[in-house]
């Protein structure tokens, strides 16, 4: 392993320590289970009841899975806010002065969100499967969790790029994540197919990991060939890697900017 790779891994680990500590401050097991998880289940139930009210059983399955995967989007996008926390706490200049690899640190710094998102989304999918007409074989269960994990992390990579932008306008962090979450809910196939919207919207949706994550999980639920599922999963990973690369470049640029003495990031 090269020296740079080792430095990146160290930065990720250091960032993850902060992530773990922040998460423990944010939630206890009681508030995560009794608060956040209940909220998540209510969100999926909210959209599912709309599906039941307006559609046929196939549409209900479409909406239940769409609403469940939106949980991993919403939770992973909490990264936008947590990316700015170092700035708000005044520790960002210390980070910029340290020899940390910026992209590596930020990849670890908010990792609590995609990990929590994987748990909440998986629980939501399997809980809602008890009430709605979703079918999984025993072999599907680990595949669902892996697909949710993949989608959460790919969305996390996208959220890191938005987080980098939020470092320049930290007051708008919650507005940014809310707008992106709602735009993804509307246009990326969560409640209506992507081709319901004009073709330009459909093309833009291809750059969003969860568009392909939704395809993968819906193919799996409908019993499609595993090759088809793997193709969509591959697209999730590919889009995620592109976002991660952009995030790494963005954080390096921001740190270089700060290290040159810019006051805008202090």
């Amino acid at each position: 392993m090269g020296i740079h790779a080792l430095r990146v891994m160290t930065a990720v680990r250091q960032g993850f320590i902060v992530a773990r500590t922040d998460f423990a401050w944010f939630y206890t097991w009681k508030t995560w289970l009794g608060g956040w998880l209940v909220r998540v289940l209510c969100q999926v139930a909210f959209y599912s009841i709309i599906g039941v009210t307006v559609g046929d059983p196939d549409y209900v399955v479409h909406v239940v899975l769409g609403a469940a995967l939106m949980i991993c989007v919403a939770e992973s996008l909490m990264t936008v806010a947590s990316t700015t926390w170092d700035l708000n706490l005044g520790t960002f200049p210390l980070l910029a002065a340290s020899p940390v690899v910026p992209g590596g640190y930020y990849f670890g710094r908010s990792m609590m969100w995609p990990l929590s998102a994987t748990a909440t989304t998986s629980i939501a999918i399997f809980t809602m499967s008890l009430f709605f007409d979703l079918h999984w074989t025993a072999a599907d269960v680990p595949l669902v969790v892996v697909l949710v994990l993949l989608t959460s992390f790919a969305t996390y990579c996208m959220a890191l790029v938005i987080g980098a932008v939020a470092l320049l306008a930290p007051g708008a962090r919650n507005v940014m994540s809310a707008v992106v979450t709602m735009a993804i809910t509307a246009f990326c196939g969560a409640v209506v197919p992507v081709d319901f919207w004009p073709s330009g919207v459909g093309w833009a949706a291809q750059a969003v990991p969860v568009t392909h994550g939704l395809n993968a999980i819906r193919h799996l639920e409908s019993g499609a060939d595993l090759g088809v599922v793997a193709r969509s999963a591959g697209l999730v990973a590919l889009v995620g890697v592109v976002w991660l690369t952009v995030a790494m470049i963005a954080f390096r640029g921001l740190f270089n900017h700060s290290r040159r003495g810019s006051a805008s990031l202090s």
Partner: peptide
């Protein structure tokens, strides 16, 4: 900020499902 997006999400459901 979320109001117009919620409107688009809910309206798209109604239009798509014919309700």
């Amino acid at each position: 900020i979320t109001a117009p997006f919620f409107a688009l999400v809910f309206m798209s459901i109604m239009e798509y499902s014919g309700r």
